[in-house]
Nucleic acid binder design. Structure first.
Length: 723
DNA sequence: TTGTTCCAGCTTTTT
DNA sequence: GCTGGAACAA
């Protein structure tokens, strides 16, 4: 292969990054500027031009999807197998590393990865046994605390003792949780990273080996790394200047879960020989969309600085729609989509983006009513589903009878007459004699501790598990799964649940058998773990893409967060209202407000050709009617890039006649009454301005009065007092 | 063991 | 105002 295939298709900045002699590199890659492309081509360059062996290359991403895509694209470009290359998520790679070096990491070879759901259950149980009131210390907050500590690289012993009762209790649970996990060989997500870091740090030989092995380390979405992830990267590359990172400070939207945007600044300090390259040419959006996005993000302070530009034309203006209420907003959006589809476009090219999941319902209802296929992203993933977790728990327990979490999950699922009392007795004995729950149960059966009824229930459970173990010997993985699903009674149990729910669950169980059949066991990278174990770890680490009709032409609904990295010809950003977006919890904190602004920037830059933004003048939220002001972000977009769309609203039945108007955000001509303005009327009392219409003496306002309800008033007659 | 009722909580999400 | 979980009664 010659050099041209690798760099010909690139622009100057991209080419510079790909072929740079420098090993420490910070690529500031704007939205739609070909970020993944640079990474893929850089790796290809190293392999083909600099003759670095694939297995000397490490590339880290955040999601399995991104990892898969990168591997695929490298393979396509070079027409080689990239199997020996370490490409994966931080968690996936840490897991692989710990499997391989479980002794150095002081982990049992059978250690198991638990997901956040298991973690929460575990902590709830632990707190109960410690007799800590979960009203005062909600388990969720404890989990949050522990994970936040781990993300910062702190063990319980690293946190100084305090007098603060609140911290004290949290700390004591953290300590107990660490012990429990160590004893039962459980590793949560944050632990994977922390443990991998510690093992590498405290093991000179291991560290030297990997530092030598990875000639070049690449990181995607660098702005999303947290403290421990960056620390791990530094261990591998410090002093060697071989860290190549790609990121965009303007798209950092995960600060709330520990991502440190500062890592981008720290990188510049820690790798003084680095080269900085900006990718500012955008290949996605039209000029107007970019101008608007640039102006919006410019309102943030402390940016690394970057301005996107494009060669494609100006394109359409951004359309702004002021909806009467959330119903009207949904109606407008769905009507627009129908027009779009009627013009022969595809539904899959349209995305509706919202700030919070709860907003999806309005749109779903309207889409459903018009028979428009749609797909909602987010929500429960395949391996997170209750019935799937139940089935997996059977498999866990069969393979590892000491797995207490699995035991608890299925001891009475399907119900077999083991009540809370019985379980409590088992727990007590287990705790007293330091036994696993399984062993405690066996002991209690043996000593005939229980009433015949409870005893029989337990016996039938023990027999079932043992029978399943026997029967699954020598079977293929998918046959084992099939056996468990059917013979555990789970399938029958879920099938008889009423409604569609039961049916869906039964289907999912069958799908699990399918997933097992399609699962590819790679004995080489399994580091000695059995196929079942690898499958179970896979289920924890890779929650499975949201299921759905991938092949049907569907409108896409998702949160702004999950839209990152995607692009659509037509985008609707909805609910641009103060208190919703930016969210109420963010408005008082400048840092968090900036993150909201970045989120808005992410949303806008998803749009290729058409961008619609909308807000509702009235919105029902938590059962109360709200009259929010339009989002401040709308005011930060230059008026020249906006066109307002007003549907002549007849409250009962909006008719879609469009009257574009340049550069205004729904203000009356006098400018005296803003939407959401509180006013007082002599007769009707207090109310809120919802709409302003007409000009001069004809100017009238629609007001929602607290006591008198909705009224249209002529301004020249009504005596209104601005509050 | 199951069904009912009451009550808090209510951004964003990956692994 | 809706939902999920926990507490309680049958």
């Amino acid at each position: 292969m010659d050099i041209t295939a690798i760099i010909d298709s690139l622009n100057d900045a991209q080419r510079q990054a790909v072929s740079a002699p420098a090993r420490a590199m910070l690529v500031l890659a704007g939205a739609g500027s070909g970020k993944t492309r640079v990474l893929v081509h850089r790796i290809a360059w190293l392999i083909k031009i600099e003759h670095i062996a694939p297995h000397n290359i490490l590339a880290v991403t955040f999601t399995n999807k991104a990892a898969k895509e990168m591997r695929g694209r490298v393979e396509d470009l070079l027409n080689i197998s990239a199997r020996s290359m370490w490409i994966g998520t931080f968690h996936g790679l840490a897991h692989r590393f710990l499997r391989q070096h479980n002794e150095e990491a002081k982990l049992p070879s059978t250690f198991q990865v638990i997901d956040s759901d298991d973690q929460l259950r575990l902590i709830k149980r632990l707190m109960k046994s410690m007799q800590i009131d979960d009203k005062r210390w909600p388990a969720k907050q404890i989990v949050w605390f522990i994970n936040a500590q781990k993300d910062e690289g702190r063990r319980a012993k690293d946190i100084p003792e305090t007098q603060d009762l609140y911290l004290k209790v949290q700390l004591s649970i953290y300590r107990a949780y660490e012990e429990l996990c160590a004893r039962s060989g459980l590793v949560d997500f944050a632990e994977l990273l922390l443990k991998a870091h510690e093992t590498l740090r405290d093991n000179a030989e291991l560290l030297a080996f990997y530092r030598d092995r990875f000639k070049q380390v690449h990181v995607d979405e660098f702005q999303d790394t947290n403290t421990i992830q960056y620390a791990w990267l530094r261990l591998l590359t410090d002093g060697q200047d071989n860290l190549f990172v790609v990121g965009d400070d303007d798209q950092s939207i995960y600060g709330w879960r520990g991502a440190k945007i500062e890592n981008m600044f720290n990188f510049q300090k820690h790798y003084p020989n680095h080269q900085l390259i900006r990718l500012e040419q955008n290949y996605r959006s039209t000029g107007n969309i970019l101008k608007a996005s640039n102006a919006l993000i410019a309102c943030n302070e402390g940016r690394m600085g970057k301005e996107l530009h494009t060669d494609s034309g100006e394109g359409d203006l951004i359309s702004l729609y002021a909806a009467f209420n959330e119903q009207d907003e949904a109606y407008f959006v769905v009507e627009r989509i129908r027009q779009w589809v009627a013009e022969g476009h595809s539904r899959a090219d349209v995305a509706i983006l919202y700030r919070s999941n709860a907003q999806s319902r309005q749109f779903e209802e309207k889409l459903m009513a018009t028979g428009t296929p749609y797909r909602v992203y987010g929500g429960l993933r395949f391996f997170d589903r209750l019935e799937i977790k139940n089935a997996l728990a059977y498999l866990y327990l069969m393979a590892h009878k000491d797995n207490d979490a699995a035991f608890e999950r299925i001891i009475n699922t399907p119900t077999r007459g083991v009540g809370a009392k019985t379980l409590e007795t088992i727990r007590e004995l287990a705790k007293r004699d330091n036994l696993t729950l399984w062993a405690a149960m066996v002991e209690l059966i043996r000593t005939e501790h229980f009433s015949p009824r409870a005893s029989n229930a337990l016996k039938s459970f023990a027999v079932l598990i043992n029978k399943l173990i026997k029967a699954s010997e020598g079977l293929e993985l998918y046959e084992q799964v099939k056996l468990v699903v059917e013979d555990s009674g789970l399938l029958a149990f879920h099938k008889k649940e009423k409604g569609d729910k039961g049916e869906a669950r039964a289907e999912n169980l069958e799908e699990l058998v399918n997933a097992a059949r399609q699962f590819e066991y790679d004995a080489e990278s399994a580091e000695g773990a059995s196929e079942l174990d690898v499958f179970l770890a896979h289920a924890a680490l890779e929650s499975g893409d949201a299921q759905g009709d991938e092949f049907e032409d569907c409108v896409q609904l998702m949160t702004l967060h999950s839209a990152k990295g995607l692009e659509f010809p037509m985008v609707f950003m909805v609910g641009l209202e103060e208190g919703l977006f930016p969210s109420q919890q963010s408005v008082d904190d400048p840092g968090r407000l900036e993150e909201e602004r970045r989120l808005c920037y992410v949303g806008m830059t998803r749009a290729m050709r058409l961008l619609y933004m909308s807000y509702a003048e009235s919105r029902r939220l938590y059962g109360k009617e709200n009259y929010p002001r339009p989002s401040r972000f709308l005011k930060e977009i230059p008026a020249e890039q906006l066109q307002e769309i007003r549907v002549r609203a007849n409250v009962t039945k909006p008719v879609a006649t469009v009257k574009p108007k340049m550069g205004t955000v729904a203000l009356g001509s006098s400018g005296r009454y803003k939407l959401g303005q509180r006013v007082r009327h002599v007769k009707f009392g207090e109310g809120v301005v919802l709409q302003v219409d007409g000009e001069g003496t004809q100017e009238r306002v629609q007001i929602n009065f607290a006591s008198a309800g909705m009224k249209w008033l002529m301004l020249s007659y009504a005596k209104l007092e601005v509050l």
